[in-house]
């Protein structure tokens, strides 16, 4: 009989049971590809929805980045770095060289949430208030602050915005990513996490 995922304790979600063997396999590679595909669609639509220059006033792609690393560890982190390369190109929001420059921040935007949930033992289905606060702080605000700082710095480095315009770009980026992350990400975590936690693709450690 399987345990209902939402009734599991947060510690229990991440604990590897005695005799439980976890190793990376093809399912993780396939899930990486499918999750990247989801990210491409969500990221492309986000960029096209309300574009304000190089940033979008509504980019739910960051929610997918954070969620990916919470559910799939480093596989989600790789997806977080990979899908903006394609979605930015498809939507025309950033050319390839700029997207490549965003890569470290995109991986961080994903992995910070995954690290925080594992380190602080938060429940992916956001069962308690503590889980919510960890999600909002480490899944939305901190990653987006880092991503917006890095991204706006790269735009200055590429000569696409002036130094003086960096603060405005940072604020547009931070707000445009944080709000949809909190709204969309919370709903997905709340309703989809129980399904993911029961699947073979769920990653308790970093790779399996």
């Amino acid at each position: 009989m399987s345990t209902d995922a939402t009734t599991m304790t947060a510690e229990g979600v991440w604990a590897v049971e005695e005799g439980e063997i976890r190793s990376p396999g093809i399912i993780h590679v396939v899930m990486l590809a499918l999750f990247t595909g989801i990210g491409i669609v969500v990221g492309t639509f986000g960029s096209l929805a309300i574009p304000i220059g190089f940033v979008s006033a509504f980019w739910p792609g960051q929610a997918v980045q954070s969620i990916g690393s919470i559910w799939f560890g480093w596989w989600g982190g790789i997806a977080a770095g990979l899908f903006p390369l394609i979605s930015n190109s498809l939507s025309g929001s950033a050319p390839l060289p700029v997207s490549i420059a965003y890569l470290p921040a995109n991986i961080l935007q994903g992995m910070i949430a995954g690290y925080a949930f594992r380190r602080l033992k938060a429940h992916p289905a956001l069962v308690h208030g503590r889980d919510w606060s960890i999600w909002i702080l480490w899944g939305a605000l901190v990653p987006n602050a880092i991503g917006a700082a890095w991204g706006s710095t790269m735009l200055v480095a590429f000569g696409l915005v002036t130094q003086a315009a960096q603060l405005i770009t940072f604020l547009g980026w931070f707000v445009g990513n944080s709000i949809p992350t909190i709204i969309l990400g919370s709903i997905i975590l709340k309703f989809v996490s129980p399904l993911v936690m029961r699947s073979n693709a769920f990653v308790k450690k970093w790779w399996a």
Partner: peptide, 20 residues
């Protein structure tokens, strides 16, 4: 629109199993 994502993720999970 947000709630569409719930069945879509469910389908993706099932598809990952099938493809792998």
């Amino acid at each position: 629109y947000v709630m569409y994502l719930v069945p879509l993720f469910s389908i993706a999970l099932r598809r990952a199993e099938e493809i792998s």
